[in-house]
Write a protein that binds this DNA or RNA. Sequence first.
DNA 1: CTATTAAATTAGACCGATCTAAAACAGGTA
DNA 2: TACCTGTTTTAGATCGGTCTAATTTAATAG
Lengths: 234, 234
Amino acid sequence: MPTDAVEDYLKAIHRVESRSGPPVSTSQIAEALDKTPATVTSMVESLAERGLLSREKYEGVELTPAGEVAALEVVRRHRLIEAFLAEQLDYEPTEVHDEADALEHHVSEEFTRRVERLLDYPAADPHGDPIPPADLSAPEDAGTTLVAALEPGERGTVARVSDRDADVLEFLVDAEITPGTTVEVVDITSFGLVTVRTDDGTEHGLPEAVADRVYVRRGTDSAAATDGQEAGDA
Amino acid sequence: MPTDAVEDYLKAIHRVESRSGPPVSTSQIAEALDKTPATVTSMVESLAERGLLSREKYEGVELTPAGEVAALEVVRRHRLIEAFLAEQLDYEPTEVHDEADALEHHVSEEFTRRVERLLDYPAADPHGDPIPPADLSAPEDAGTTLVAALEPGERGTVARVSDRDADVLEFLVDAEITPGTTVEVVDITSFGLVTVRTDDGTEHGLPEAVADRVYVRRGTDSAAATDGQEAGDA
DNA sequence: CTATTAAATTAGACCGATCTAAAACAGGTA
DNA sequence: TACCTGTTTTAGATCGGTCTAATTTAATAG
Ligand SMILES: [Mn+2]
Ligand SMILES: [Mn+2]
Ligand SMILES: [Mn+2]
Ligand SMILES: [Mn+2]
């Protein structure tokens, strides 16, 4: 019987932990959830009492195994719901997040498994984030960012696009830089502008803030190009 | 931004109102929602302040037009979700209720419309309760109970089976007495036992408590027998 | 070692939803 | 009319989640 709030805290802590590792600070959580630090302190106390995280005052928190399991269950539901919305109800990748953020707390295990089955066990959500299977054996691999992975002239397959910033995501979807598409890096300027050529031959100039949110695998894996494989947030 | 609780109160009040008419008493609401009368009094005060119902102390409450609209929106979402679960995810009619009761508060209008479209604008949920269309122009007809509608020897089409009691519903589903099936009343005893013959020729003896929860239309409408048309609860 | 400062915690409040126990009420009975 | 009795409301408490304002702490700079 975790509440919506509890699940959102666990999910946020898990995300931060998997990016910058434990301990996760009060302010990081507050930032992620748009709550005041005081609120976070009190919630985090209660989470610790329930054994979902360990906490060192003034130091930060770290999920316990129980807390991580609970977090992964939320992530799994979130991403499956996103995949369902996109595939069955024709949502755009830019539209799925908010809906999934509410529903993730209210679908049963039964529902989750049935949706997963209906979608034939999808590997990733519409942004390319991997969907933990029922046993929660999630790879949760961070993936390689565009400039880190590819030199100018090289090609790769988009594995994931971060869904953190709605505007950035919108831009990428418009440019058709989405999981499964092939991109070639044309040029990288000293001031961070990355020019890429997509499948259809059009070129796009990506400012650093955008390029950093595109994760690729080197080379073109023509087979099964639809199921992304990298990872990070929800 | 009505909360889950507010929506559940409105839905319950609406249901009672449409059965026994206003005013709806504190104890009726308490009974329907399994809350104490004191709790209901305080919630009902707040609902009145928001203009969702009118209230006369010690008399009871009645939904305002605004309250009825809000209630119908919940009913619509509830029934559409039930229909979706049954048709897309192969839930049994006995399994859909609890899931829908949670989700009804968390799906967006967008989601609702898309599901409705995916299901091609279904007229009724898996129990035969009519689904109010987007403009909420709901017929909300109570339907006719088995013994009231049919004399022994007459046949009718099941329009709706009440989902109030889970065990009764289970029984009816097992007997394949569900919306769309044809039943013939074979016999009605003085002590309330109703014997019916279903489509496949098998006979079932229904105690009064069960028979009263089956609603039929006289005659057999072979065409469009799948979409029920009567009404009542969720 | 002290002073500054940013981060975190504590103190205290509020709101929504719920409960239990006590009081008030309305309708029918003697 | 005066009394019961069942229903309803009031009083007062608790819990989860949140906030603002005040305080404490840890780290850093002098
Ligand atoms: Mn959420
Ligand atoms: Mn996602
Ligand atoms: Mn509900
Ligand atoms: Mn129903």
